[in-house]
């Protein structure tokens, strides 16, 4: 006997709230931000629903950053021990950069770890392993990680980060292009801006704040492009 095919009850990018039905039938699957109850798939969060064939996801619109494997984060070195460095990145517990993942260079036995990153330094590192909320390992060895110096840090809402980066980095490269600044966006909502003229840095901050404010509007890239052209004259 053939089972009845499931039905998807929402559209792509529809705003949903907790407990809202996304789909029916056992042939659909719950992704992140969704769960199954009997033969229904329901939302866990306030967010935008995404349909990926038979996988239903909800991307949250609010709330704090939750650490995830493979995310690049920006954080501050707050502790140095025998094990390596500890990084504060806006989560209740610190991430650990173990000695063996501390640098692309070779770290000799008994080296002064402050020569690499000292207290108060900011780093862009990559999360390699999330075991629990207290055990988060990060690495400085993989591409895209670096020590950050001579710049300014701004904190944005973590749920706006995908919009600040844009599709294939279109938004962030637009801002970089107009301001000649070096910008690192951490998935945790920490943005590091350095290089360029001081007033250009401020312009970059303004543009990022604008993106954060109007994150849900349509045609945002054009709007920001116009804004940057007007302001940089």
């Amino acid at each position: 006997m053939e089972e009845k095919m499931g039905k998807i009850l929402i559209e792509e990018r529809q705003l949903v709230v907790p407990g809202e039905e996304l789909a029916e039938g056992m042939d659909n699957l719950p992704g992140e931000g969704a769960f199954r109850e009997d033969d229904k798939i329901l939302s866990l969060k306030v967010g935008l629903a995404h349909i990926d064939n038979r996988l239903l996801k909800v991307v949250p619109l609010g709330g704090k950053y939750l650490p995830k494997d493979g995310d690049t984060i920006v954080g501050k070195v707050v502790d140095i021990g025998m094990y390596g460095w500890r990084v504060d990145f806006g989560w209740p517990f610190f991430a650990t950069i173990p000695l063996r993942d501390g640098s692309r260079e070779f770290i000799p036995n008994g080296a002064d770890l402050r020569q690499y990153y000292t207290f108060g330094d900011y780093v862009a590192c990559k999360i390699t392993k999330v075991v629990g909320s207290k055990i988060i390992d990060a690495s400085m060895k993989v591409p895209g990680t670096r020590k950050l110096s001579n710049g300014r840090l701004i904190k944005v809402q973590p749920t706006r980060v995908p919009r600040i980066i844009g599709k294939q980095g279109s938004m962030i490269s637009l801002i970089k292009e107009h301001t000649d600044c070096f910008i690192v966006v951490g998935q945790n909502g920490y943005v590091w801006i350095s290089g360029g003229e001081p007033d250009k840095q401020l312009l970059a901050v303004k543009a990022i704040r604008q993106v954060e404010k109007e994150a849900h509007g349509e045609g945002l890239t054009d709007k920001i492009s116009e804004f940057l052209k007007k302001e940089s004259k």
Binding site: P18, E37, V46, G62, K64, T159
Partner: peptide, 11 residues
């Protein structure tokens, strides 16, 4: 709670 992004099965 829903606004804070806590995973909720219902209101």
């Amino acid at each position: 709670l829903a606004d804070a992004g806590a995973p909720m099965k219902d209101l």
